[in-house]
Amino acid sequence: MIKVRQLRKRFGDQQVLDGVDLTIEKGESLVIIGRSGGGKSVLLKHIVGLTPPDSGQVLVDGQDIAHLNERALLAVRRKFGMLFQSAALFDSLTVEENIAFVLSRERNHTPEEISRRVAEALEMVEMPGVQKKKPAELSGGMRKRVGLARAIIYRPEVVFYDEPTTGLDPVVSDSIDKLIVRVCERLKVTTVVITHDMRSMQAVGRRVAMLHHGRIYTSGTPVELMASADPVVSRFVRGISDEKEHTF
C-alpha cells in the first residue's frame, strides 16, 4: 500500500534520512523504532506528505506523493489519520468541534449524523460525555484519546501514531497501547506507530522496523528484535548506552 524508496532528507549539515526503503502492507501493524532525534517523526511526516524530501519516492497505492502540491496532497491525506505526539488539538474548538472537524467541512452530513458519529468515536476511545470540554481542560492521556477520535472518525485506511505514549505514565501508556490495538482490530486499519517505548512496541507491533543512521537498519517481529544478538539492536531494545557514543 505504501512504499518508501531511497528517501533522503537533510536539514542544514545533518543528513536525517539517508536512503530509507520501507514497505507498509495493507492491514499490517508496523512499529518504527529508533533513537530520539534519529528521524522517525521526519520519516512519518514524509509518508503523509507534510514534508517534501530532497530525493526519493513515497508511493501511496502506486502514486508518488513526494512532489505533489498541497492541494493534490489533500485528496491523498483523506486516506490517512494521524495522532500527533502533542495530540495537536485545535485549542479554540471544543472536543466535539475538534472531532467533527472533517465531517463539518464536508457539508454533506446532517448535524444529527455528526453528533452521533462524534459520540461513537468518543465511545471507541473510552471518553464519552466530554463533547463540550475545551482541550485545555483535558489531561495528556485524554488529549491523545480525543486526538485519536478525531483521526478515526472519517474512517481512514491508515492511522499513524507519532510517539503516542511519550510523556504519559506507565498505566496511561498501557491503556493507550490497548486502545491502538483495539482501533486496529475493530476498524481493520493499517497501523503505523513511531515510538522508542519498548513496551509499546511489543504491545502494538506485529512487525518492527528500526531506523538507525538515517536508514532502516533491520526489521522483524517484536520477539525477533528483543532477542537480536546484533549489538546496535540489542543495546537499543535493552536501553544500554554506548560510552563511546554521544547519547543526547
Binding site: L50, L73, L74, R77, R78, F84, F101, V102, R150, A151
Partner: peptide
C-alpha cells in the same frame, strides 16, 4: 503542530 494537524485532516 496544529497547522500540520489541519493538513492531515485534508484541509
Amino acid at each position: 503542530e496544529q497547522i500540520d494537524a489541519l493538513r492531515t485532516l485534508a484541509t
